[in-house]
């Protein structure tokens, strides 16, 4: 309930404020969003498994985002930013799919 309201609140604030993203952060924002999405699906799965812990969720949320951005930043410095960001997106995508599959099994028993 509060989670859904929080998501809605974030969207509304983003629409109302319309902040300008700093140029240096622009390549990392999409990666950060996907990493956060991965953490959220991981948290939902843990919740359905009955092993959810808010501290673990918070740490995994921020560390996911931070590590994804660091990897991409490092890739940019090494000149392989494109390839590394693709790699990060692929890995996170696979994790999201496997988490969603587990969630589906919990909810639909299928």
């Amino acid at each position: 309930m509060i989670a859904a309201l929080g998501l809605l609140l974030g969207v509304v604030v983003g629409l109302l404020v319309q902040p300008e993203v700093p140029l240096g952060l622009q390549p990392y924002l999409p990666i950060a969003v996907v990493a956060a999405l991965d953490a959220v699906f991981g948290g939902l799965r843990a919740y359905l498994d009955g092993i959810f812990d808010d501290k673990v969720f918070t740490v995994s949320f921020f560390s996911n985002v931070l590590i994804a951005m660091i990897i991409v930043y490092l890739g940019d410095q090494l000149g392989v930013g494109n390839q590394l960001s693709t790699g990060v997106i692929v890995v996170l995508g696979i994790r999201i799919f496997s988490n969603v599959a587990a969630i589906r099994r919990h909810i639909l028993h299928a």
Partner: peptide, 24 residues
């Protein structure tokens, strides 16, 4: 509960980042 507040806050951050990226 505290856990729910934290989850709500993090999801708010996620929603905010996502919408900012989409608008950019």
């Amino acid at each position: 509960s505290r856990g729910r507040m934290v989850v709500g806050l993090l999801l708010a951050i996620l929603g905010f980042l996502a919408i900012v990226q989409i608008q950019t």
